[in-house]
Amino acid sequence: MKYLKRYRFFLLTIVLMAIIFIINKEVGLKALNVTGFSLKEMLLVIPPVFILLGLLDVWVPRETMMKYMGESSGLTGIILAFIIGSAAAGPLFGAFPVAGMFMKKGVRFLNVLIFIGAWSTTKIPMLLFELSALGTTFTVTRLLINIPGIILIAYVLSSLVSKEEIAGIYEKAQSL
């Protein structure tokens, strides 16, 4: 029963996939193909990311993380959040477990949000693909708009939630 509840979203998508197969086999096969491809990508990226998270959890003391990225880390924290997010590999949903770990280690909420923003739009490996496919002007223009955008969105988001709400999210992160 516990498993059923945890996996209900996954089960739902399986049902959805089955329905698509019944309606249109060709679309279903294509969907399955893409799924297989993403699964392979996930299986490739996930083990190192989670092992690194585990190592970070065990070896890096909370105080160190707080010093460089915590409440009073100021500009250093923001820049570090940008650098770590940009150097990342893997799809956006991989950023959330890392963000969870950051919260567990007492990283400032603003920096967590900047990290998510950086992971989504300024990832260096992605930029290389973008440069070659869409050209320099497009990429540079997008970056110049996105970098202030990430900071702006992070500030707006952190002002949207109360201290209590943030505390609640941080508390939840402890158990994840």
Partner: peptide
């Protein structure tokens, strides 16, 4: 560290799997 890595992964696995299927669809 490895135990923690596994726990964190196991925790989010159901959502990951669902998302990947949804993307495929």
């Amino acid at each position: 560290a490895l135990k923690k890595a596994w726990k964190a992964f196991d925790n989010i696995l159901p959502e990951f799997l669902g998302v990947i299927l949804l993307v495929g669809i």
